[in-house]
Simulated scan of single mutants.
Amino acid sequence: MPIKIGDSIPSLTLQKITDDAPASITTESLFGGRKVVVFGVPGAFTPTCTRNHLPGFVENRETIRASGIDEIVCVSVNDHHVMKAWAKDRDALGKITFIADWDCAFTKALGLDADLSAGGLGVRSLRYSMIVDDGAVTALNLEDNPGQATVSGAAALLEMLGD
């Protein structure tokens, strides 16, 4: 069952992409006592993720942060090499926090996994965005169509933050 508003983020250790080797970070340290925007994408370098989803968060990061957000996190079911290459390719390393959910553990714990084998991708993340405040989900935006990034995009999230 997918995570919902009011639920707490499960306790896990994640792989955060850095300039050097990936760094382990717990969900408690990432989300505890902080307000964080998280967006999940089906795959680094995939067309919608690269052209439509990630760019909005990179371009609007200062406005999002000025709305009381401590960090913007991108999660994808990819290994750390792919995530680092994608972050560098998109000039987003250091601007957005990239999490390599290489084994799909975080995505599955959230109940936001999907079998995209028909498209040659295997088990991946649904496309979503959410706001996490001190470890609890306060907003969750799930895309109906993984080929679109409207409901879960930065523009929609900014509207929510402006309310």
Rank of each mutant, 00 (worst) to 15 (best):
Ile3Gln: 00
Ile3Asn: 00
Lys4Gly: 05
Ser8Pro: 00
Ser8Gly: 08
Leu14Asp: 02
Lys16Asp: 02
Ile17Thr: 08
Thr18Asn: 07
Ala23Gln: 15
Thr27Gly: 01
Ser29Ala: 09
Gly33Phe: 04
Gly33Gln: 03
Val36Met: 00
Gly43His: 05
Ala44Asp: 13
Ala44Pro: 01
Phe45Val: 07
Pro47Glu: 12
Cys49Phe: 00
Arg51Thr: 10
Leu54Tyr: 00
Leu54Gly: 02
Gly56Ala: 09
Gly56Lys: 01
Asn60Leu: 10
Asn60Cys: 01
Ile64Gly: 00
Ile64Trp: 01
Arg65Lys: 11
Gly68Ala: 02
Ile69Tyr: 00
Ile69Met: 01
Asp70Trp: 03
Ile72Phe: 09
Val73Met: 01
Cys74Ala: 10
Val75Tyr: 01
Val77Asn: 12
Asp79Val: 11
Asp79Tyr: 09
His81Glu: 09
His81Val: 07
Val82Trp: 12
Val82Ser: 14
Lys84Phe: 07
Lys84Leu: 11
Trp86Lys: 03
Ala87Gln: 09
Ala87Arg: 01
Lys88Ala: 14
Lys88Tyr: 14
Asp89Ile: 08
Arg90Ser: 15
Ala92Val: 13
Leu93Ala: 10
Lys95Gln: 15
Ile96Ala: 13
Ile96Asp: 07
Thr97Tyr: 04
Thr97Cys: 12
Thr97Glu: 04
Phe98Met: 15
Cys104Met: 15
Lys108Cys: 06
Leu112Met: 05
Leu116Met: 15
Leu116Ala: 15
Gly119His: 11
Gly122His: 03
Gly122Asn: 13
Gly122Ser: 06
Ser125Asp: 04
Leu126Tyr: 05
Tyr128Val: 03
Tyr128Met: 09
Met130Lys: 05
Ala136Glu: 08
Val137Lys: 02
Val137Gln: 08
Asn141Ser: 13
Glu143Val: 07
Asp144Pro: 10
Asp144Ile: 06
Asp144Met: 12
Gln148Ile: 13
Gln148Pro: 01
Thr150Ala: 13
Gly153Ser: 09
Ala154Asn: 11
Ala154Lys: 02
Ala156Phe: 03
Ala156Asp: 06
Ala156Val: 06
Leu157Cys: 05
Leu157Tyr: 05
Leu158Gln: 11
